[in-house]
Design a protein around this nucleic acid. Structure first.
Length: 267
DNA sequence: AACACGACCTGGTAGC
DNA sequence: TGCTACCAGGTCGTGT
């Protein structure tokens, strides 16, 4: 579920809610409650690797969360579809959907909730980076255009490919293509340079704004389930009228996912 | 190399 | 009401 803005909100809240005293940021005990959460790494190995280590920083790269441990490895968390990572005052009060928890010295806990259990937690050596490309704001318009001109795949799949551009998911990709008036099935490299420039600007602005609204909306676990934290123009609106031209929003399968778009506005 | 597709999981809901 | 089928904001492995 979470795309870059939501993951960013999760990271910001984590940083805010972690204890401030250094000694209180020690992970006393770690528990991974099912093997699939760390596969192929053994849950016990992850637990052992982080136990007794202090949390130094919480970083984000694309949709990946990296928790650096002082004098230790980095805890690598991916929320996938339904994951959520947050601090609770008493670790024993974790939810039924909690897949992993990390007890701090204060008794507080960092919990990884994930109803669908597709999320991942691994240990990485410091400096090991997820295989993702730059985020839109890290590229100039010219660089973004140059990149896009090398891509044969449909525009929607290009935006979804984390190794090309990091951070976008099914909703933001569809919404950005709508705003840029680009048909999602059009071969990326055949999209005109002006449209690609517009798309780049839209991506940067959209993600920046969404970070703020996602952060404000993200107070309690469960917020993801409440729907989008911004008004969507096309996503999940199949059959409804486009608010620009009035035509019915269409849904097509792409890469095994649903893409929503307006055939009137997007060419 | 590029692409399609199932697998991974659970839960909600539209449709019969 | 109850059952089924399909869908879900993501990624990876396998096969063509």
């Amino acid at each position: 579920m979470p795309e870059l803005p939501e993951v960013e909100a999760v990271c910001r809240r984590l940083r805010e809610n972690l204890p401030t005293a250094r000694k209180d940021r020690e992970i006393v005990t770690a528990r991974l409650l099912r093997p699939s959460v760390s596969r192929p790494q053994a849950a016990a190995d992850v637990e052992t690797a982080v136990a007794g280590k202090r949390i130094e920083t919480v970083r984000r790269i694309g949709k990946h969360i990296l928790v650096d441990l002082f004098d230790g490895p980095t805890l690598h968390v991916h929320l996938r579809m339904t994951g959520n990572l947050y601090v609770i005052p008493d670790v024993r009060l974790h939810a039924a959907t909690t897949r992993a928890w990390f007890e701090l010295r204060t008794g507080a806990g960092i919990v990884f909730d994930d109803p669908r259990a597709l999320g991942k937690i691994h240990v990485r050596t410091r400096g090991e980076v997820p295989d993702v490309g730059p985020e839109p704001h890290e590229l100039t318009a010219a660089q973004f255009i140059a990149l896009a001109k090398t891509v044969k795949a449909p525009a929607k799949l290009f935006l979804m490919d984390q190794t090309k551009v990091a951070g976008l998911g099914n909703i933001y990709a569809a919404e950005a293509l709508f705003l840029a008036k680009i048909h999602p099935a059009k071969a990326t490299r055949t999209v005109s340079a002006p449209k690609l420039a517009a798309l780049h600007a839209i991506l940067v602005a959209m993600l920046e704004e969404a970070k703020e609204s996602a952060y404000r909306a993200y107070t309690e676990p469960g917020y993801f389930a409440e729907g989008e934290s911004f008004p969507v123009a096309v996503y999940d609106r199949e059959g409804e009228p486009c608010n620009v031209c009035g035509r019915k929003i269409k849904r097509i399968p792409q890469g095994g996912r649903s893409t929503y778009f307006c055939s009137g506005c997007q060419r």
